[in-house]
């Protein structure tokens, strides 16, 4: 599968990554190269193979559904580039 500039622009948009116009073509070439290489997986017939969903066969650990943690909002926002009264501050998003 060859990746074109349009596909790079689309992936960049989905990934919320600003990619300058002059980087689209080189990235398309790099991604095409890597995807062409991974396509050797198509040599394998995996029609009747289950995908791996758990690295080790195990049941997920469950805990009681009770509050065990919290009440330190100041810590939560401590590393925020901008915060006010223990809220994260972002640009206005409501029109």
């Amino acid at each position: 599968m060859s990746v074109d500039e349009k596909a790079v622009r689309r992936a960049a948009r989905l990934a919320r990554l600003a990619v300058p116009e002059d980087r689209l073509a080189p990235l398309a070439a790099e991604l095409s190269g890597i995807l062409a290489w991974v396509e050797q997986l198509n040599e394998l017939d995996t029609q009747n193979v289950e995908p791996m969903t758990s690295v080790r066969p195990m049941r997920l650990y469950r805990r009681a559904d009770v509050v065990t943690d919290g009440f330190y909002a100041e810590d939560i926002v401590k590393n925020a580039p901008r915060s006010e009264d223990n809220f994260f501050v972002v640009p206005k998003v409501v029109e």
Binding site: N42, T46, M52
Partner: peptide, 8 residues
Amino acid sequence: KAQKVRTL
């Protein structure tokens, strides 16, 4: 596909 190859 890759997760199936992992199983293999």
